[in-house]
Amino acid sequence: MSNLSTIIDNINYIGAFTLFIIGLYTVLTHSNLLKRVIGVNIMETAVFLFFVSIGYIRGANAPIINPEVGDTFFVNPLPSAMILTGIVVAVSITAYGLSLLIRLYKDYGTLELDEIIKKEEIANE
């Protein structure tokens, strides 16, 4: 019974771990490079979810001061502020990866890694 309550209490962490594994599985098993970029994005989302969940405090408010109420019980604002940097870096990495994929597609006519390696081997011989 205590195991079940542990799972329910930490459901965000377990969700983040599962998302990370799904993203890693996508990166490892698919040979299509576009799907690998999507897998990297899923892994990034898992890290964001994990990091924001660290800052959660049970029963606390969103960190916006209400001048009329004046309470000071807020969730931790620091992880939310830092994850903004992570999101910007994720967008930048995705854009750069997609531009590299466009060049690859222009040169090889495909995004499958197996076919690209095969074409490269034929060109080397």
Binding site: N10, Y56, I57, G59, P63
Partner: peptide, 29 residues
Amino acid sequence: VLVSSLNEMPVMGDIASPAYNEVAEYYIN
């Protein structure tokens, strides 16, 4: 392995979690 690390971590939403330290309190106050 990842899920088993939950035993060593503070429970989610705990006010005594080490992430909720004096830095966050400074910003809030």
